[in-house]
Simulated assay, not measured.
Amino acid sequence: MIRVSSRDFLNKNDRHKALLAMAVGISQMQNVDVMARKFLNESYTVMLFHYDGNVDGWRSLEWSDKAIHIVAPNQTKWWFAKRFLHPSVVAIYDFIFLWDEDLGVENFDPRRYIDIMVSEGLEITQPALDPDLSTDIHHRITIRNKMTKVHRRVYDNRSSMNCSDDSKGPPCTGWVEGMAPVFSRAAWKCVWHLIQNDLIHGWGLDMKLGYCAQGDRAEKVGVIDSEYVVHQGIPSLGGPSDTSKLPRRSLDLRTHIRRQSSAELEKFKERWEKAVREDDEWMDPFDA
């Protein structure tokens, strides 16, 4: 007689492990609380990187002791990720959610999201952005399409974009933004090596993530529409937002950080180009 347990009827997703990692400040505790509960309710792991040094302020949350807390003042999520999310350390997780702290998740379910990643064969994704409620939407490919479950490309006939079925790379296809990326274990093992130890803002990474897609980036990278979020555009460490009510000192700091980010972008591009020149055996898999 063959014994069949209830475990045999579990959805495949029940065996998947996921990690939500965020750089957070105490001022966003209420929003992070909502985000974290979504993941903890599914028995996923939450890791908080405290860039303001305040950990004790989170103790009032009932789930605080269940989360992993790491502290380093004035650092970014990419700085934390490079130092604390080494592929060997997070190898137990099937999916890594490396998110900003200012996302509204009322219409997002992490379990359904992972189901879609698996069924669609996606390695790198992001949830679509609600165009009606989100601020700071910079790229059309991130906007939610209400008619689809997933989209992998955007169509735009403006001369500055010219995105069509013939487009083979970012920002038309094979691309997600840095605010809410989700990586499979295999993709993260590659992405971690792309992150530069000294370029803490991660500018330029988004354009190269497709090289970690474990195949054709036009097929393996996508934006998931049915599980979408709101980007609230709340500033942290120099991010864009309404500056009309900020004190002069804060404006000066954010201006400095954005200048540093722009300088890091140029350094990242230079390093990529240098590596390509010096590696005689490397062939660009996406070179048309």
Rank of each mutant, 00 (worst) to 15 (best):
I137V: 13
M1I: 11
W203L: 05
P87M: 05
E273M: 03
I2H: 00
Y113R: 06
L85G: 11
V221Y: 06
F268C: 08
L103K: 02
D130Q: 01
Q126A: 14
K220S: 09
A18F: 01
T243Y: 09
A218R: 05
V154Y: 01
W282N: 11
N157L: 14
S134F: 02
L10A: 11
S236G: 00
D115N: 15
H16P: 01
D287F: 11
G53Q: 08
L209V: 03
E62N: 13
I114S: 10
A263E: 07
V105Q: 01
K12S: 08
D198M: 11
R152G: 00
W188P: 12
L246A: 12
K267W: 05
W175R: 08
P181Q: 00
T135S: 15
L253V: 11
V4G: 06
C190V: 12
H231A: 09
A23Y: 07
H201F: 12
R185S: 15
T45S: 13
I70V: 15
A81C: 06
T76V: 10
W272T: 03
P235H: 11
E278C: 14
Q232V: 04
Y211T: 14
Q196K: 13
V4C: 12
S261Y: 06
A72M: 07
I200Q: 09
G202W: 06
P170R: 02
P285Q: 02
E120A: 11
K269N: 09
G104D: 04
W78F: 11
A288T: 11
A186H: 10
A275M: 15
E42M: 10
R37K: 15
V118R: 04
D102C: 10
S262V: 13
S184D: 01
S60N: 10
S43W: 05
S88Y: 01
P285M: 02
R37H: 09
P73K: 14
T255K: 02
S159E: 08
E270S: 15
F9R: 07
M179T: 05
G222I: 04
I68H: 13
V230T: 07
A187W: 03
V32L: 07
D216C: 10
A213R: 00
S167W: 04
H86N: 15
V223G: 10
L246C: 05
Q126W: 06
R15S: 05
V191A: 07
S184G: 11
L194S: 13
L20E: 01
D252Q: 08
E101L: 02
S134M: 01
D166K: 08
N162F: 02
V176W: 05
F49H: 08
Y113P: 07
L205H: 01
V276P: 04
F49A: 08
H86M: 13
L253E: 13
L199Q: 14
D242P: 08
N107E: 13
M161L: 07
A218G: 14
N107W: 05
D252K: 03
K82Y: 04
K66S: 12
M179H: 02
L10C: 13
H201I: 01
V105D: 03
A21Y: 02
A36K: 01
R158Y: 09
P73D: 07
G239E: 06
M35Q: 08
V46N: 05
N145Y: 02
K274V: 08
I141H: 00
D33Y: 00
W192T: 09
P171C: 06
I92K: 14
P87K: 00
I143Y: 00
W99K: 04
P110N: 04
